[in-house]
Structure formats: structure tokens, C-alpha cells
Amino acid sequence: MNIFRLAGDMTHLMSILVLLLKIYATKSCSGISLKTQELYAVVFLARYLDLLTDFFSLYNTVMKVVFIVSSLAIVWCMRYHRAVRRTYDRELDTFRHYFLILGSFVLALIFHEKFTVREIFWAFSIYLEAVAILPQLVLLQRSGNVDNLTGQYVFFLGAYRGFYILNWIYRYFTEAHFGRWIASISGLVQTALYADFFYYYFLSWKNNAKLKLPA
């Protein structure tokens, strides 16, 4: 565990806490894409199959369980909670996310480390995570105005990706045999998707203005 990875995990955790806080405190999920949340739930379930077979550390196990449970709880709230579901921007959240699942799975069948169920699900989860933010970014772009908590949620998610890239650079120079190609290329793609959002986030922060994305 290095400082970049810890910072990445913590900002990832922060993003989830900010999202839970927004939903709990405001009883609203406006501006949040259910499609993206469903994709994250699939990502965590597919990747953390190893919870059943491997043990790395208590930290690793606890974080995995937290990510799985929180992502399922968020999806459940947005779909079934009586007050929260009414605030869902259904008509703006029309990204066809099934294509992302299908595409990621096909990619995993082609590019994987070993042709085993676990390796293919692992690669699938990496590819899917790289593009899972797309429905969220499209929704934000369409709604134009972004409330503070939603902006911070996406900011922390982007920060998490940035820290993970620093972590891979660090591991590349400090560890032998660090197998990284699938994760690194997907991670770079994922981080690049946030670039546009970050530009407008910092602009609004610099000008002390409300975050607005151009149409």
C-alpha cells in the first residue's frame, strides 16, 4: 500500500459518502444517473468475486464489502425509495448502458490474462468501470446546472482515478512483475473521460460560481 493508492481509495470512499449524504439529507437523487450507479454495482460484483476465494487483508475485504453494499443500496434507493425515486431525472438519463455492458464483456472475452471465468469477469469489470461514468456525465451535460453535492461526487470520483494513475506509476518503478496493462490502459481512458468535467469544475471554483456545464 502506497500513499497514492490510499489517497485514491479514500477519495473513492468520499465520493460514495457524498452521494449517500446527498440522497439521505435531501431525499433527492436529482442529477444522479441510475444507469451509472447500476454499472458500478455490476463492476463491484464482477470484480470482487475473489472475496469468496482470496484473502489479501482486512482492509481489502472491508473496502470491497463497503463498495458492494453501498452501490446496491444506492441503486435500491433510486429505484424503490418512495421519496427519492420521484426526484430521479428519468427523462434525462436515457444512455443505453446495456451496450456498455455488452461491449465490455466482448472486450473481456478478447483481451484477458487467462481464459478462466474469474479472469474474464475481472477484465470485464475493469473495462466496464472505465466507461461507467459516461451516463452520469451525459446527464450532467443535459441538465446544465449541477448542484454542489453532485459536483463534489463526480470530483471525488475523478480524483480517485487520478490517484490510481500515480499509484501505478509508483508501483511500476518500485515493484518487479507488476502486471498492469489491462488496468493501466483502461484507467487512462477512464481518467481522460473526466478531463472536461474537471476543467469546468475548476473554472467554477476559481470564479466562485455555481458549476454549469455547456450544452
Binding site: 493508492r5 473513492h12 475473489d50 481489502n60 512483475h177 507488476f178 502486471g179 498492469r180 493501466s184
Partner: peptide
């Protein structure tokens, strides 16, 4: 020891 792997990440 096992070679280090990106799979020990979250």
C-alpha cells in the same frame, strides 16, 4: 512470494 499484481487493488 507471489509476484505483485494489480489484482490486490480495489
Amino acid at each position: 512470494a507471489e509476484p505483485s499484481s494489480v489484482k490486490d487493488e480495489l
